[in-house]
């Protein structure tokens, strides 16, 4: 029986690892997206007492390795009485960490937003919340699409860090198979193939979304 046959017999384990990674990834990027939008909304306020600490928090996150944040949530929080299991620590860390990156991408684009549009909306009587959700956010998302796409690939790659805090996901599946049957090369080639497939699929989806914004005159590729 060749090594590849062993892997085929164990396909259920790969599949569950794959689905687990997809689940973690999907949940955490939704969380990250919401956090990113939320941070952007809070940064819209002009109160320095709120925006300064937020800016510092975002910059701090961008200067930390993801794994340190995951350690902080998984190993550190119990010291102050908050106990999360590995899975939720991982998802939480991913959401917060990449949420800050999303926020920074949005903020960078917000700086170049034409003030005339906002004045026009205010002149039409838009409230602050309506202005943000109907006007600012959709345009900023369309314009930053390629950067968001890159960030999604980083987020996907960061899910593999969770094997270190004992979450069973795709890389963990390869690791356990390779130590059970001593076939590391084949096991990891398969897993790398999975990651590659996800990111190629994601790139295609992001590009397709480009049509939506291109139709509205946002011609960034």
């Amino acid at each position: 029986m060749s090594n590849w046959d062993i892997l085929w017999d164990e396909r259920a384990q790969f599949l569950s690892g794959f689905l687990s990674t997809l689940e973690i990834f999907g949940l955490s990027i939704v969380g990250a997206f919401v956090i990113g939008c939320g941070l952007l909304y809070l940064l819209e306020g002009s109160r320095k007492r709120l925006t300064m600490p937020l800016r510092i928090f975002i910059d701090a996150m961008r200067m930390l390795p993801f794994l340190i944040l995951a350690y902080l949530l998984y190993y550190g929080l119990p010291s102050i009485g908050i106990r999360l299991d590995a899975w939720w620590s991982g998802v939480g860390a991913l959401a917060v960490y990449h949420g800050c990156y999303f926020a920074e991408i949005f903020r960078g684009n917000r700086l170049t937003f034409p003030p005339g549009q906002i004045e026009a909306a205010q002149a039409h009587g838009f409230t602050k919340g309506k202005l943000f959700f109907r006007l600012l956010l959709p345009q900023i998302i369309m314009q930053t699409r390629p950067l968001l796409g890159n960030q999604l690939i980083y987020a996907l790659k960061d899910t593999a860090f969770l094997v270190i805090i004992t979450v069973s996901e795709l890389t963990a599946a390869a690791n356990s198979l390779s130590s059970t049957y001593f076939i590391p090369t084949e096991a990891f080639i398969v897993v790398i193939g999975f990651y590659w497939a996800i990111s190629v699929a994601m790139e295609i989806i992001i590009k397709q979304c480009g049509r939506f914004s291109a139709k509205r005159g946002f011609d960034n590729v």
Binding site: L156, K157, P184, Y195, W196
Partner: peptide, 11 residues
């Protein structure tokens, strides 16, 4: 570009 570093290091 698509392979996580953890996976690559283990591999």
């Amino acid at each position: 570009r698509a392979t996580p570093l953890v996976t690559l290091a283990l591999f």
